[in-house]
């Protein structure tokens, strides 16, 4: 808030030292993003140079050892899994947020919220493990093989639900009480109030939450790696195993060399680009929307 804008303040030596080191640390932290991007570029340069962008989509298949680098099916895998998860999680999350505010008794509402917060903190590897030992056998029993796009969608939905729900919850909490009171004074039913007052005033906030959830789903690695089967193919049904870009990196980084390694960095760069796009869109919305806490 208060700045040392004056060029004349009487800095003692200690002040100079402090401001110098603080500035250095801040510039380092701020430059970290650039460093990450620079390294991704640097490492994926051989791929861009030797293979070229088009071959990632025109090669016959993903056989990096045979110099064949088709990423298309993994891009589709990523897209199907994350959009499916968002489509499944968003309505549930929004309804749960409404539940917390308007339906649950106060005690239950507090516990429900606390539960969702805990859910948000469960590590993805635990979700993945649970999916692997509980969900996948169930799906396999119903419709073999088991590890599938469906399992990925379910686990991802479960993981991003808390993100969307907590953002929606906050934006509903910021709806001015006067709106709710005047809606009640007009004799609105609960349904009309939610539909005509709450949702319109919070739609930007909720959309922000969905974008953040989508970003999380796109970048998620461990859970999808553990439940999706990791077969490189474009899925045609919900029960087909898939491999996502993130899982591909995690599986092959250990032994990848040369162009193969560069191709993996390339897909990381691509993922990062997507996620950065969604996160900046969400941040942009957040700053424009007065009903979402800026915190």
């Amino acid at each position: 808030m208060i700045s040392s804008s004056s060029n004349i303040s009487p800095h003692s030596k200690r002040d100079d030292l402090l401001s110098g080191s603080v500035r250095f640390l801040a510039l380092t932290a701020g430059g970290l993003l650039l460093l990450v991007i620079a390294f991704l570029f640097y490492e994926s340069w051989p791929a861009l140079h030797h293979i070229g962008l088009t071959r990632f989509f025109s090669d016959p298949d993903w056989y990096p050892t045979d110099n064949s680098y088709r990423l298309t099916s993994m891009v589709w895998g990523t897209i199907f899994a994350s959009t499916g998860a968002v489509l499944l999680a968003s309505p549930l999350a929004i309804l749960s947020a409404l539940f917390c505010h308007f339906y649950a008794p106060p005690l239950l509402s507090r516990w429900f919220r606390r539960m969702v917060e805990l859910l948000a903190g469960i590590p993805s590897v635990v979700f993945g493990f649970w999916g692997l030992v509980v969900l996948v056998p169930m799906i396999g029993h119903w419709h073999p093989p088991g590890p599938s796009l469906l399992a990925g969608i379910l686990i991802l939905a479960f993981m991003i639900m808390p993100t969307i729900m907590l953002v929606a919850h906050t934006s509903i909490a910021h709806v001015p009480l006067a709106y709710i009171h005047s809606a009640s004074a007009l004799g609105f039913s609960r349904w009309s109030m939610m539909w005509h007052v709450i949702l319109p005033t919070t739609k930007v906030g909720i959309f922000t939450g969905i974008l953040l959830g989508l970003a999380r789903a796109l970048g998620e690695t461990m859970a999808v790696l553990m439940v999706c089967g990791n077969v490189v193919q474009t899925p045609s049904r919900l029960f087909d195993p898939i491999r996502t870009l993130t899982a591909n990196i995690a599986l092959e980084m250990g032994y990848a060399l040369g162009d193969h390694r560069a191709a993996l960095f390339m897909s990381g760069l691509f993922l990062m680009g997507l996620v950065v796009l969604f996160v900046s869109m969400a941040e942009g919305l957040r700053h424009r929307n007065t009903y979402v806490a800026t915190k």
């Binding site: 932290a29 650039l34 991704l40 970003a215 970048g219 690695t221 993922l271």
Partner: peptide
């Protein structure tokens, strides 16, 4: 702004970066 974006970067990408650097 750069920290906000960094907060959204997937952990696997941090893994790639950490491996390289």
């Amino acid at each position: 702004g750069s920290l906000d974006v960094l907060a959204g970067v997937p952990s696997i990408v941090f893994g790639l970066f950490g491996n390289a650097l």
